[in-house]
Structures are given as C-alpha cells and as structure tokens.
Design a protein around this nucleic acid. Structure first.
Lengths: 249, 249
DNA sequence: TAGAACCGTGTACAACGTACACCTGGTGTA
DNA sequence: TACACCAGGTGTACGTTGTACACGGTTCTA
C-alpha cells in the first residue's frame, strides 16, 4: 500500500503512450479503473479489493498490477475519473456559480459516496479535479476580494458540502452493509430509546415528541442556503477588512 | 469485527456491575479504553489494533476481550469517553451558544482527530455525546422555530465543523505517517507543479503568484463566522415560511 | 531468426480481528 | 473446610488483505 507519489503524478498528468512491443494487452488501465469504480459504487470502498476487481474483470489479481502500479494509485485514478464526469462551473454571478459548483460536487458524492472516503490531504490531485477547482475560484474572482479571500470563500462551501456528504455517505454505506434502511434500523433500537428520558435528554425527547425528527428538512438545501447567505453578507459588507495587499483581477 | 449493537447499548448506557467471583482483574474496561485512546492519539486510528493496545498495556491481545466484547464496541466506548471530556453548551443567546458548541467540537476534533474517522451513521451514540447534543438543541430552542428547524440549524453547524475537521484530521494523519509537514510535502511535489500552467489552470496560478495560498485565512474561523451569519439571516428573517405546524417552547 | 519487452499467472508472506480451547486463581455454597 | 464454578489471562489457528517475486507465453524489433 506504499506509494511513490511522483509516480502518481506521471500517471495522472502524463498518461504513458502504448507500448509497441509485447503481446496485445487484453486488459487496460481504463478498464481496470472503470471496473474498480463499478465495484465501489455497488459494494462500497471497503469491498474494493484487488481480488474483487480482478474477479469482475475475469482476470487474476496480479494481472491488475500490469496496468496500475498499486492500489493507492488506482484510487487516485478512480477519483480523477469521477471528477471528469462533472461539469465545470460556468462564468457568471458568484452566487449562482458557487451554488452550481456545490450542486455538482453534491451530485458527484451522491453517485459515488466512496469519493468521500478517499480524501486524504496527500491524495494526488489529477487534472480533471483541478480544472473544476479552478473554475470555482474563477467565479468569485471578480468581486474585488483578496486572493486568500477567494480561496476562503470556495473552501467554506467545499467544507460544508464535504460535511453533509460524509453523513450521507455513511448512511448509504450502512444501509448496504446491513440491508436495513436508516429509519428502520434506528426504529429497531428500542434498547437505546429506553434511555432517552426527559430528565436526561429534555430537548431531544421534546423534539422527538413534536415530530421534529420525522419532518426533517433537507440538510443539503437548508445548509447550502445558509452558507451562501453568510458568504453574501461577507462579500457585500463594506467594513470587510480593507487591508488587502492586492485584489485579484 | 461484527457487532451486536444492542450489546453496545448496554455497554454504553448500563455499565455492568463488577463480578463478585473469580480472580481480581488486573485489567479493566476503562484502562483498555484509555490505552486505546492514547494509541489513537499518538499513532492514529489505523495503528489502533488490538495487538497494539494490548502491547502498551503489557498484556496479551486476547486479554482485552475479557473487558471489551470486540473492536467495534471498543470504538464506541472511546468515542463516548472523548465526548465526556467536553463541556456542555450553557444556556444563553443562540449565537454565542452555537459558537461555543462549534468550538467545543472543534477542540475535541483537534485533540483527537481520529474521532472523525469513527463516525458511521450506525455507531451507537453514548450518553455523554447525547447530553452535549441535547444542550446544543436547547440553546436554539427559544427562538420560535419549529422543532425540525431547530434540528436543521444545529445540524448545519455540525456539518460545517465536520467538514473542516476532516480536512484537518487528514492533514494530521498524513503528517504523522510521512513525517513531513503539509507545506514541505507539497513544496516537494515539483513534478506536480510543472503541470500548473496558466493556460490549464489560470486562476490557480494567479492565486499562487499573488500569494493567496501562503496567506491562507483560518478555515474554521472564517467558515464558522459565515455559517453563523447565514443562520442569523434565517433566524431573524420575517418571511421565514410561517407554516410551522408547531413551534417549540 | 534471436532477443528484448511485455502480458498474465501462481505462490508466498506479514498483518489484521477474533474464535476456541486451555490453565489458573479466587469466591460462594454445601 | 471442601468443592464446584466462574472469571481472567494465554496460545494457537484461520481467513482476508495488499503485493513481492519468479515464471512461461506472446509479439515486435534488430
């Protein structure tokens, strides 16, 4: 599971030419990556083993290593392949743009919840991911913000989507593993609810009794609107610290 | 690694009495949990193996299973033990209260980054975590919001802190694993930077050149202020959908 | 046509959680 | 006091993981 990260860079940013010698390859890197994505989609990242990927392709485990240096690099490639399936944020109004970006990322996480489990701060970013990131920066670049503020604004949105996404991904994973829906599972935890008494947890029992856990608002929609409102207040405020070394664009 | 969740409930909410028969136990559940937390703090959750915990305690691996049913339950106990070390949100103004809550959770995540890797939607909540959650709900309960809105407001803050936290936790983990700081590591990725050209990534190179990635704002402080601003706009708005079946308190 | 380059296979190893059988030491009951 | 029983701690063993390594077959180049 060790990984030479510069090898990942070459893998992602400088796809190698096809070899001229040797037998025709029955397998290819893209087929391996696609198969791995399918496995992760259907069975979760914890079921994503080299053996399992090879099995779905009808090859032996070790044959994968002819096309992918190791599992870590395979994960890098999967992540960038999924990013490739998202749309770039179009130029335009900052708020519409950030909302577009957030919804693209959200849709991506919903389609491939395992993406959220593959975010390490050292995972090598690929070109597809980076161009999307660049477009997101671009949409807030004409507001007279300092460049570190541009970064902070986009990052705030990302952190929020990331947070909601993880909760969603955890639920999806748990539902697949147990075969029981979130609601059914928690409803079955009578041994737990016995301890939810008004003296110990007054607010939770009150919210429960008034149905607040049944009529839940959409976490993503509610939160996104609040985050964008908060950013609007920041962007439109006049007393924003004006000590900005340079404005961007 | 399988787990009987009702057993976890009993473990967390109904700590068993000490047995009267048999030899005096040299080990205890709390010692196992404490040792496990120390291992996770120092070496990360990926180094948290039953063998490693036993080793630090000077016992054999299997001795742990006399005090803890399995690894999954040990994780449940670790999580609740860490929550026990945080302060309850005091009653008072909603904004100060939510900020207090966010900072408590943030401090907890900073001290124990592995907590963020143990959040599954089916992980059994313990009494310590739940009373903190209850106090957070309480602080927004006197604003005339519907109970599902109370949940949504607290959840929005949680998602944000969770998102920032994961990024931080990933960085801490990577720094421990590689022994190289985030900054040094990325600075060493020259093979990657070669591909960051203005034609491919115009905004990123511009932000880079104007120092926007060096003078980064504090993600937590910046984002928290925006989220609270956004929630304030929601709470104080007059045209908030008034079709609220019941208000809370 | 010889040889190099490349593809796919099979075997093997260390680390993981933990089931199971075992011995040992202490307590409650007869 | 005798003894049955129960709980604590140990040692062994199994299945699963990623992947190193050696091998044999295939196809293009010199």
């Amino acid at each position: 599971m060790k990984s030479d990260r510069d090898r990942s860079v070459r893998l992602l940013w400088e796809p190698p030419a096809e070899p001229t010698r040797g037998p025709k390859a029955a397998l290819s890197q893209s087929r391996v990556v696609e198969a791995a994505i399918k496995v992760a989609d259907a069975e979760g990242v914890e079921a994503l083993t080299m053996r399992r990927v090879a099995e779905t392709l009808g090859f032996t485990t070790m044959s994968l290593y002819r096309h992918v240096p190791g599992k870590s690099e395979l994960l890098d490639l999967m992540v960038d392949a999924v990013w490739a399936g998202t749309e770039h944020t179009p130029k335009g109004a900052w708020r519409a743009g950030l909302e577009f970006f957030a919804r693209q990322v959200w849709a991506m996480y919903r389609a491939h919840p395992w993406m959220l489990q593959l975010t390490s701060s050292r995972r090598m970013p690929g070109p597809e991911a980076m161009t999307r990131q660049d477009a997101a920066y671009a949409v807030v670049s004409e507001l007279g913000l300092a460049s570190e503020e541009i970064v902070a604004v986009v990052t705030a949105v990302s952190h929020f989507v990331h947070g909601v996404g993880r909760t969603m991904a955890d639920r999806v994973q748990a539902e697949r593993e147990t075969g029981v829906s979130e609601e059914d599972w928690w409803n079955g935890r009578e041994a737990l609810w016995e301890h939810f008494t008004p003296d110990r947890l007054p607010m939770m029992t009150h919210i429960w009794n008034s149905g607040g856990f049944e009529r839940m608002l959409d976490d993503f929609e509610f939160g996104l609107a609040r985050v964008l409102d908060g950013l609007a207040a920041f962007i439109e405020s006049e007393d924003r610290p004006l000590v900005r070394p340079e404005t961007c664009l």
